[in-house]
Design a binder for these strands. Structure first.
Length: 457
RNA sequence: GAGAAUGUAGCUCAGUUGGUUAGAGCGCUGGUUUGUGGUACCAGAGGUCGCGGGUUCGAGACCCGUCUUUCUCCCCA
């Protein structure tokens, strides 16, 4: 035990059947993305620190994995900053590169850098790992995959409508039994802050309101007070907790509440457009819910905000997203609106494992295994195997002359679908025994009929 | 980054107030069966008790440090 090797915390190895399930997951997501016209891109695993730092708030910066400078670059270390106890500055002088923290910010950088080669509106999807120096917990890893789709260069709300459909399509296809797409709009949150006269504290305010389902009304009010919101503001926030009913009813209540806020009314209008369009089309399995407490920490969102939760499972959100009007502005390209979503593949995997939702076909094993009887028989098996492979059938010849019992057990453990037994007798009569491993049935077949027979199975 | 729990065989876990040689089930290997797996029976292998230090005549158990995993907070997929 002591000498056993280990991998860093929050990382995982994947065994063959896990990889099979994960590929199924990625392929399902990819298929839907493609269906809606998104094209794949890839970006490097690591970026310049300056690209990532400061884009995710102070909390986010703390969680970015930084790559230590090597060789002569070490001399750039800012010892004065160290002496002055300015650790962030010291760290920056030691690490010019960092592992990507999400796919959205690198994508913004990508768009700015390749703006002349892209056609706008540009729709891309991207499935790659990201890294966070977070403390690992259930459903929380240091290395995990994000599956993002974004549209950049269009401020049409049809994009939002499309993304709601994509959430619904993917998760329905994956057979997640019940899930809720929560939607809100940053402009509504701004409107609330404005109505309360606390526009400056919008972040503190929304972060507190976001915790409603966790700490309850009382908890939220306490936190708001601690964060220094005025008592008149808190009085104005209180009625929000009472808002309930259907999405349209809630919109109606908010319309009255936000009547004095121009930005708030704009948010209502946007949200209503999306909800109406979705209502007209209907969703397969998802529940679309206007949740005015939904905030999300990333402060680059400016319009719609999405979050998806699987119901009846203990797991944080499995998807997220939203609109960001000025993300590329951070890299010098103004006036380009973007909106995007992200599937948390690792969490969806955990949910599907917990609910046993992977179809059995995903982990189906090798189609044919030829058992090994002896040198003469193996020569024939090699010829037959080659011919199967020409017909795109996966097969394998057991590599050594172990006891047949052991070879059968190997076939069983590998979940092999069919086993071919070809021994002395069969060799003489130019036949073979084909055994179906799941039913246990077996039949004698001519060499000539073998290819056709196996292709039909 | 703050607080708490956890770690014993490949896996899931027992192990009394500190006391001889640390156990079980499953899995693994071999056999019953040298041409038949998933069942049954028999036998066997496998552990410096997470790691490092300390207390003690004696530590899997107590103390300190450290790492892992898990939980709460923070934040998030």
């Amino acid at each position: 035990m002591a000498q056993k090797p280990a991998i860093p915390k929050g990382t995982r190895d994947f065994l063959p059947n896990e990889v099979a399930k994960r590929s199924y997951l990625f392929e399902s997501i990819k298929t839907v993305f493609k269906r809606y016209g998104f094209a794949p891109i890839e970006t490097p695993s690591f970026e310049l620190s300056s690209t990532l730092m400061g884009k995710y708030g102070d909390e986010g910066d703390r969680l970015i994995f930084r790559i230590l400078n090597s060789g002569e670059k070490m001399r750039k270390a800012d010892l004065e900053a160290l002496a002055a106890d300015n650790l962030p500055k010291f760290a920056s002088s030691l690490a010019e590169k960092a592992l990507r923290y999400d796919l959205t910010v690198p994508f913004a950088r990508f768009v700015v850098q390749h703006q002349n080669e892209l056609n706008f509106p540009f729709k891309r999807y991207q499935i790659q790992p990201v890294w966070r120096a977070d403390r690992p917990q259930h459903g929380r890893y240091q290395e995990f995959f994000q599956c993002d789709a974004d549209v950049v260069g269009s401020d049409s709300l049809l994009c939002e409508v499309e993304f709601v459909q994509i959430f619904d399509d993917v998760l329905t296809h994956l057979n997640i039994p019940s899930f809720t797409i929560k939607i809100n709009n940053r402009k509504i949150l701004s409107g609330i802050a404005e109505v309360c006269g606390e526009s400056d504290r919008i972040v503190e305010m929304t972060v507190a309101i976001d915790k409603l389902d966790k700490i309850g009304e009382e908890g939220v009010l306490n936190e708001l007070e601690q964060k220094g919101l005025s008592s008149t503001a808190i009085e104005k926030i209180k009625p929000l907790f009472q808002f309930s009913g259907s999405n349209l009813e809630k919109l109606q209540l908010m319309r009255t509440y936000l009547a004095q806020s121009e930005v708030g009314m704009k948010g209502i209008e946007e949200l209503e457009y999306v909800i109406n369009n979705i209502d007209n089309m209907g969703l397969k399995r998802a529940d679309l819910e206007f949740d005015l407490t939904l905030a999300r920490g990333l402060n680059y969102y400016t319009g719609a905000i999405f979050e998806v939760k699987a119901n009846n499972v203990n797991m944080g959100s499995i998807c997220g997203g939203g609109r960001y009007d000025d993300l590329t502005g951070l890299f010098g390209l103004k006036g380009l609106s973007g909106v995007g979503i992200s599937f948390g593949a690792d969490r969806i995997y955990d949910v599907m494992t917990e609910l046993d939702l992977f179809p059995s076909s995903v982990t189906k094993g090798l189609k044919v295994l030829f058992l090994h009887f002896g040198e003469a028989e193996v020569a024939k098996c090699l010829t037959l195997a080659r011919s199967l492979r020409e017909n795109n059938i996966d097969c394998e010849v057991y590599p050594s002359g172990a006891k047949i019992q052991k070879q059968m057990k190997y076939a069983n453990d590998r979940a092999v679908q069919y086993v071919v037994l070809l021994g002395e007798e069969e060799l003489k009569s130019e036949t073979l025994i084909l055994k179906n491993m799941s039913t246990g049935e077996q039949e004698v077949i001519d060499y000539k009929a073998f290819n056709t027979k196996i292709t039909e199975l």
